[in-house]
């Protein structure tokens, strides 16, 4: 089984083709460049290198968010259209989990973070089971970093916490201030999502694949206009 995996949820653009036992090809860039322009070209390049036609794919994996609204939409719209028009399954996977998989085997808490502005982060808390499985200790959410840190500190009972993601650099001071020695930071290669991880997870979950039509981004937030409208209309009731 060959799975094409895609992650465009943040600045990183990562595409990979994996089978049950190997990563056949993977390309990851971390540039301030337009995913809309580059995603399909990168997929085309990868398949050409492997001398594979799209018809030889058996599934699509995609990081479905949270992350940049536009980035996530480009990834999901591409993945669901590819899967639907090829008649193959598609598996949507948390973009946070994609990054957390870099730290499989780490014995403390694994905390991927994407900046969500105004002191907030998109984040979750994972724990590694052996080398190939993550359990979710706290569900993905958008939360003020200063509220999040005490929560996960309590949840992990004195064990170290590994913070992952390019945006962690923005918040490092706050994290160290609140958690001191318990906070760990990884070398840069651990901070980037790797589509190969997504592909591997998708093969594991291919039996519970999503219907391409109903695969949707996970924004973790309603649109701002929607939030304002809801606030106004619940206040007047």
């Amino acid at each position: 089984m060959r799975v094409l995996a895609i992650d465009t949820s943040n600045l990183v653009l990562s595409v990979a083709v994996v089978d049950e036992s190997r990563v056949l090809a993977e390309m990851t860039t971390n540039l301030r460049k337009n995913h809309s322009v580059r995603l399909m070209d990168n997929i085309s390049l990868l398949l050409d290198e492997l001398e594979l036609s799209p018809q030889e794919l058996d599934g699509i994996a995609v990081a479905k968010g949270p992350g940049s609204y536009t980035g996530v939409r480009i990834g999901v719209a591409t993945a669901k259209s590819l899967a639907w028009s090829l008649g193959i399954p598609v598996v949507g996977i948390s973009s946070l989990q994609a990054v957390a998989l870099n730290a499989c085997g780490f014995t403390g808490g694994i905390v991927p973070c994407f900046d969500a502005r105004r002191g907030q982060v998109y984040t979750a808390l994972y724990q590694s089971q052996g080398m190939n499985r993550l359990t979710e200790m706290a569900a993905e959410q958008i939360i003020l970093l200063r509220e999040w840190l005490p929560l996960i500190a309590a949840e992990t009972a004195g064990r170290p916490l590994l913070f992952l993601g390019d945006d962690v650099a923005l918040h490092r001071e706050t994290i160290v201030e609140m958690l001191g020695e318990r906070a760990l930071f990884a070398p840069s290669a651990f901070n980037h999502p790797r589509a190969a991880h997504l592909g591997w997870l998708a093969i594991e979950r291919i039996e519970q694949a999503d219907d391409p039509h109903s695969l949707l981004p996970e924004y973790l937030q309603v649109a701002e206009a929607e939030a304002k409208w809801l606030a106004k209309n619940s206040a007047t009731k």
Binding site: S36, L39, M40, I43, S44, P54, T70, R73, I74, A77, T78, A79, K80, S81, L82, S85, L86
Partner: peptide, 15 residues
């Protein structure tokens, strides 16, 4: 626009 363009490119590529 990006949603329609992404879908069109994906289908064009797939088929």
């Amino acid at each position: 626009l990006l949603v329609g363009v992404a879908a069109a490119k994906a289908i064009s590529f797939a088929r």
